[in-house]
Design a protein around this nucleic acid. Structure first.
Lengths: 110, 110
DNA sequence: GTGATACTTAGCCTTATGGAACAGTATTCA
DNA sequence: TGAATACTGTTCCATAAGGCTAAGTATCAC
C-alpha cells in the first residue's frame, strides 16, 4: 500500500511526455509493432525504445515479442489508477470522506 | 491549440511527484499558507517552494500574497484538462470518434 | 547461407529535476 | 526600534531524462 504513491509517480511521469502520449493514443486504436509506432517520429530508434520501455515499466502498455517483432498493446486497467486518484482528489474538495477515498488519500500523503 | 500538449506535459509532470500530490490533497481540504503546507515535510523551505512554483506554473494551484503570508488554493478547473485527456483516450479504445474527442486527440498527436 | 529487417545494447552528451545551504527582504509583534 | 516570522533569491550538487551514434544479435525471405 505504500507503493501506491510510487506507482502514481511513474504513471504520471509516463504521461508527461508528448511522444509517449501519442503512442498511447495510437495504441488506443489497437496493438502495433515497435517499427509501426516509431515511424511517425523523427527520432532514432533507441531513443524511441526508451519511451516504450518507460511505458511498459509504468504498466500503461504491455509488450510481447514474437520472432523479431515486438508488439505493443495498451493496458487499460492501469488508467484506472489515475482515475481513482482523480476521484479521491475530487472527493476531498467535496468534503466527502468515505472509506475508499480516505484509504487512498492517506496512502497518498505517505 | 498546439500548446494543449505542452499544458498536459506540465500538468502530468506536476502530478508525478509525491510531495506535490500531497500538497494538492491537503489543499483539497481548503487553502493554506506556505508554512502550513511545508510543515509536514522534512525538506528545506526553498526546496519546498520549488514544488509550489511548479504547481502554480502548471495551473493546478493559484497563490496570493497578503502581507508576508502567501496563501495557496487549489484550481479545480485545471484538473478537467486531465479528465478530458482520459476521456479522449477512453474514447479511442471504444472506437468512438465524435467531434470533441477527435479534436483533442489530433492536438495530442501534435 | 546471405542479406535485409527488427530490434537491442552500450556509451556519450546536454538539460532538467529535486534536493541542499546560506544570505536577504519584507512584515508583524512587543 | 528591534526581534521574530514568513518567505525569497542565489548558488551549488547529484541524479535522471531524453536525445544521439555506433555496433551487435536474432529472424525472416530468398
Amino acid at each position: 500500500m505504500e507503493q501506491y504513491s510510487e506507482r502514481l509517480d511513474v504513471i504520471f511521469q509516463a504521461l508527461a511526455d508528448p511522444t509517449r502520449r501519442a503512442v498511447l493514443a495510437r495504441l488506443g486504436g489497437g496493438p502495433a509493432s515497435i517499427s509501426d509506432l516509431a515511424r511517425p517520429f523523427d527520432m532514432a530508434l533507441p531513443s524511441f525504445m526508451k519511451h516504450i520501455h518507460f511505458l511498459e515499466g509504468s504498466g500503461l502498455i504491455r509488450t510481447h515479442k514474437q520472432g523479431r517483432v515486438r508488439t505493443c498493446a495498451i493496458e487499460k486497467a492501469q488508467f484506472a489508477v489515475v482515475e481513482t486518484w482523480l476521484s479521491a482528489q475530487r472527493a476531498l474538495w467535496e468534503g466527502r470522506a468515505d472509506r475508499l477515498e480516505k484509504f487512498v488519500t492517506e496512502r497518498e500523503e505517505e
